[in-house]
């Protein structure tokens, strides 16, 4: 047996044991399940840390010292690319202690400001504009449905259902409304009905999503059971 296959065999045994430990939760919450979950959180966070170091921090903060040398670091062009980032990072690291955390506000403000702008820009250019355009295009009764291929009256009915679904679901999300003394949203009777229709469409959508998630996780459960069966049988038969 080669060295690699021994590692593979040991790895498969560990993976099978961990799978059984997690699936033991189906009987009852127990120490085996908790052991596996804590192990997972530890390993996943350590792996995330190593990825952040190798893909972001090392190339952005450490490598320039070796590639540019002292002359490059002292150059004026490195102020924006190296010196300011280092100062911001050091400032953010002051967050560790409650005594110094107030000095990290500038870094945090920059992070939050840029993050908010990326969220707004991404939502507008990546969701609002494309989804609105797609809605307008798909709502044209003259257009053939790409998925179902229906045309004519059938298409008009489907277009109307989609239009009612989109508008009523959207109207269900109210970001500003007056409230009655009982705490409920103060809506006109018409908007109340639109909101109910919206909730029905949301129920249908969540039902579809639930069925999709259930199907996908059942497939994963079957895969895990098959993996266990293969691991156990290969251990006993040696194949």
């Amino acid at each position: 047996m080669t060295e690699l296959s021994i590692i593979d065999l040991l790895g498969t045994i560990v993976a099978a044991i961990l799978t059984v430990m997690v699936l033991s939760y189906l009987i009852k919450d127990n120490f085996l399940f908790r052991f596996a979950v804590y192990l997972f959180i530890g390993a996943a966070s350590g792996y995330a840390g190593s990825i952040a170091w190798h893909n972001v921090l090392k190339p952005g903060l450490i490598d320039p010292f070796f590639t540019q040398g002292l002359a490059g670091i002292l150059d004026s062009s490195s102020i924006l690319t190296l010196i300011v980032p280092w100062l911001l990072v050091i400032s953010l690291l002051l967050r560790i202690s409650p005594l110094t955390s107030r000095y990290s506000s500038l870094s945090l403000a920059l992070l939050v400001g840029v993050g908010a702008a990326v969220v707004v820009g991404g939502a507008v250019t990546g969701t609002l504009i494309p989804q609105t355009r797609a809605s307008m295009e798909s709502l044209s009764p003259a257009m053939e449905a790409p998925a179902t291929g229906e045309t004519g009256f059938e298409r008009v009915i489907n277009v109307l259902i989609m239009l009612v679904g989109t508008v009523s679901t959207l109207s269900y999300f109210r970001f500003s409304t007056r409230r009655t003394p009982s705490g409920r949203a103060d809506l006109s009777p018409f908007m109340e009905w639109v909101s109910i229709v919206g909730r029905l469409f949301i129920a249908v959508t969540f039902g579809v999503m639930y069925a999709g998630a259930l199907s996908a996780t059942i497939v994963i459960l079957a895969e895990r059971l098959q993996f266990l069966w293969t691991a156990v049988s290969s251990l006993f038969t040696g194949s």
Binding site: A116, V120, Q131, G165, V167, L170, F175, I202, T205, V208
Partner: peptide, 29 residues
């Protein structure tokens, strides 16, 4: 159901989530 009813609802949800994200982002900006 999936291609018509759920599509309409999902589009409404996605647009609602995007509007919520824009609103939250603009409050910070």
């Amino acid at each position: 159901l999936v291609q018509v009813w759920a599509s309409g609802g999902a589009r409404g949800i996605v647009l609602g989530v995007a509007l919520g994200a824009v609103l939250t982002g603009l409050r910070i900006l």
